[in-house]
Design a binder for these strands. Structure first.
Lengths: 146, 146
DNA sequence: ATAACTGCAAACGTTTTGCCAGCAT
DNA sequence: ATGCTGGCAAAACGTTTGCAGTTAT
């Protein structure tokens, strides 16, 4: 556990935003300005192998990292990219069905959700606010993910 | 519908292996040797938009394409990469639960399974066959995906 | 004439790797 | 001195894009 590794772990533990490798790099760089992106990637890999963090692919083209290593599902906002944890039971039953149907063994699954988060939803519902400066009608201007 | 586009679609329709863009490129190249990978990507995009094929991310770092555009789930073999279609109902109930729990709207999901396919399983169970030529004990030599 | 399309090559963004120096054991 | 680690830069990977020429309408 080198200083770099420790700080990377701390930064992940101190956030609940499921940051990407690059976001972690930026966070860590504030404390360790000379750290390199390669080191971040290498340590993220090690921390995953130890089970201290969790690496996940939520379909937006980055690896995302979660300081909460317990298995749980996520919803991702297709507009702003925000990721929210879900508190629901895991689907175990399906894996037996699949084994019977296909003969695959050791079946696991990946399940994640996407949608429009409450904040972005509200922005669309009220696209032309009058109580805020510099808001123009129809000037939403986000890119739709996935 | 250019000749290129048509042949790309035909090749996808004629396979059930859920090929990647590069695999499709190789298939099409046998009939259209001068086609470029960029054209393949562009046409795959168009065909997806038309709903004639389906683009999916099964977590192995490639886009995969499915000539069966009806929504269905998949299992991917972590050893050989084989992808098998599943015939099971879709999970709709969850999306309402998530909306209530999180306030997200228009919730969709992505669910896929992974495991060891029957062929690879068999290879591991019987690592030293005596009834086949040139088989060596413990010479499995595959890379474990994901 | 115009719009959509191609082939080619270069660019892209994320992740991985090779190299050599530094540090702790 | 050994082996793990860090910083740096370059490579790798799948994918996307700019461009100039081509095709079909």
């Amino acid at each position: 556990m080198t200083p770099q590794r420790k700080i990377i772990l701390e930064e992940i533990a101190n956030t609940n935003t499921h940051p990407s490798a690059d976001e972690i790099y930026e966070l860590v760089r504030r404390r360790l300005p000379r750290i390199s992106l390669g080191t971040v990637y290498r340590n993220l890999e090690v921390l995953c192998e130890c089970g201290l963090i969790r690496k996940m692919d939520l379909g937006d083209g980055h690896w995302r990292f979660d300081g909460n290593a317990e298995s749980h599902y996520h919803v991702r906002c297709t507009s702003c990219g925000r990721i929210t944890d879900l508190y629901m039971e895991e689907l175990c039953d399906f894996e037996n069905i699949i084994r019977q149907q296909t003969g695959y063994e050791g079946v696991g699954h990946r399940l994640d959700f996407y949608g429009l988060c409450p904040v972005c939803k509200r922005e669309r519902e009220i696209p032309h606010r009058t109580d805020l400066p510099s808001s123009r009608p129809g000037a939403a201007g986000e890119s739709e993910g996935m």
